[in-house]
Design a binder for these strands. Sequence first.
DNA 1: CGAAAAAATTGATACACTATTGATCTACAT
DNA 2: ATGTAGATCAATAGTGTATCAATTTTTTCG
Lengths: 233, 233
Amino acid sequence: MTSNYALPVHQQISEMLIREIAAGMRLDGEKLPPERDMAASLGIAVGTLRKALADLHAKGLLERIQGSGNYIRSKSEVESVYALFRLELVEGGGLPTARVISVGRLAKTDDMPAFGSSPEGHRVRRLRSLGGRPAAVEEIWLDGSYVDRIQPEDLSDSLYLYYRRALGIWIARAEDRVGVADAPDWTPAGLGLTPGQPAGFIERIGWTQDGASAEYSRTWFDHTVARYVSRLR
Amino acid sequence: MTSNYALPVHQQISEMLIREIAAGMRLDGEKLPPERDMAASLGIAVGTLRKALADLHAKGLLERIQGSGNYIRSKSEVESVYALFRLELVEGGGLPTARVISVGRLAKTDDMPAFGSSPEGHRVRRLRSLGGRPAAVEEIWLDGSYVDRIQPEDLSDSLYLYYRRALGIWIARAEDRVGVADAPDWTPAGLGLTPGQPAGFIERIGWTQDGASAEYSRTWFDHTVARYVSRLR
DNA sequence: CGAAAAAATTGATACACTATTGATCTACAT
DNA sequence: ATGTAGATCAATAGTGTATCAATTTTTTCG
């Protein structure tokens, strides 16, 4: 029952950039493209982009130098509100990485909630590690309506980046539901996780910037290695 | 649709929205649909809806910007009682209730993280239900430095209300860590949960308004009944 | 080579225009 | 007093274009 009415565009852009900074995709000191180019590549007007940049500047995340450019000034701890990844090592932290196991377009199955508009989806199976230690396996379903085919190479760096650059969408909000379930039979060997063993289980539905539910994912995590962390204020 | 015994429509709408905000279903910053649309989808007139929205605005839960939209502004103050509880029925929702099993002052054990300043704490064990269905058992430790003794009667309604009224503290910030653990041996019989069986496991550290870690709690929930839910943006 | 001048780049500001959306008001019924 | 229905006003969002100002890069010239 989430009202999927889109926020103003400048606010969407602002939040997207903050998220990219928080995720380490935009490094400190990095120069953004010229406003004209950036606006064009985002498909928005310069004035709108400038509203978003003004917001980042007000939050102290951006330095704007006339005639020179816009430069990221990432503070050490960026608002955790915008961080969408919630698995951490039991002892805390851990740099998250992922290895793609398989990619393919398949019919959605009936054990997953309703999302998107297509009867098919792209299924991406990945092995997630935290600080180099395998911690979880996950299965991400992107609704089939956004693209016909996904090549494994497309996902080389980050799924999130692929969404944004190739598909022009990004996940603006999500709902996680955490419980317990048996690890799936495709769980790779050599993990703390073995097929059929109880594991932490996260189901997520992700909504894009304009309110469409585009993504469904489920993650089985090794509870001896990782925890799902939520910080509330 | 209006029964003679019902509250005025605008009050009903107002209370419905307040509940949704308190339950975390409406996130801070979220944009409501345009008044015209929203009124239509609720089957009421715009003027009526505006009365409800004016009430939310008066309560500080809504920011109304002419020409832009209505935006949720949830103060942590308002949501504190409900928003910190993040268990929902698998099928969604469920009114949370609690029954105290035992209360007592005990020495902290070494299987819990450091919190508070006293070597002792008040241990409250409760059975939690959602929509009348037993869903979890929990053990809450309040640091011993705040009060000498807690009477079971004190906790009749809400623990957080007791903190607030009797002790003058409230939990302003919390960190949840969710994993899997075996249900404890004191789990009451007649539940889906049996001692020694894998259950969803939530550890929480709560900080008071002035930054002291005052509370530690752990909850074992029946994953066939409930989920830990987190809505992100 | 090196400094000054010119050109190109890039952010800052302003304005016109359209569409959306909250705010206000009136009329009327129950 | 509550609720519905409709008209109108005012503020905001977003696009597009033009212009100014600061900075950087390139060219010119002694």
